[in-house]
Design a protein around this nucleic acid. Sequence first.
DNA 1: AACGGAATCAACCGCTGCGTC
DNA 2: CGACGCAGCGGTTGATTCCGT
Length: 262
Amino acid sequence: MVRAPCCEKMGLKKGPWTPEEDQILIKYIQLHGHSNWRALPKQAGLLRCGKSCRLRWINYLRPDIKRGNFTEEEEETIIKLHEMLGNRWSAIAARLPGRTDNEIKNVWHTHLKKRLIKRNQPVINSPSQVLLPTPDSAKGPCRNVVVSSPQRSTSDDMDSTVTTSENNGNNMSMKYDDLEGNFTEIDESFWSEVLSADNSEVAKGKEYEMVGGGGGEAGIPLAVLERVNDGYGLNLDDNNVDFWYNLFTRAGEILPELPDNI
DNA sequence: AACGGAATCAACCGCTGCGTC
DNA sequence: CGACGCAGCGGTTGATTCCGT
């Protein structure tokens, strides 16, 4: 079922707003407020749909909008909030006075995501999707591991993927379809839970069979591997060296108190 | 100066959640 | 309690600007 676009009605204008239209909208809202966006354009005499008016007001015309470049402080705040909240742009915007969700989303996609990859930090696209840089991403082609789970369940393309990608455009992808809806949803708490559980065992000095690693790098406990495989419905093994390295990079992020011997 | 690719950002689209009837 | 309508949200697109060659 395809819903008709909201502006499909005859005569409704699309595209960039003119200064005249802006003025009409500002004046109308100053006088009458915006209790009903759908009725607003008709009452204000604008040939726009209510949705378009709402967006224009919220993202551009609102008097409390802060214009201009983001400060370093704001950018760091976005990075931190994004780590906590994922792609919940409106929630992030609510903590940055004068900035809109659209603006923050744009800054994230154009600046901050790239900066984090350059810094060799994990990029969390959502609470259940993590982009991880490899140890040599600073010197060679940036290679990432993406672990994602479906955010929405209504479309036919519902799937989950584990992807390694390189910036030369070659992707190696393992794909897991579960159209029956049996996919186990995993979020940050899963990672914390899995890794803190094993951390406590490591702290007790318990011996673990290690897997992964290589080139002098530590591997990870088999127990963690098994839980990750179970949790994500994966079948990863000792051969996924990059994945393991990145997994541990991520573990260090979540659990800074991890003992040095891991 | 001209061109092409990359970067930027405003705006649109489609979906979800919530309130109302 | 289901249907409907609306506001809000996040992903995506496309026009414009910037920058390197």
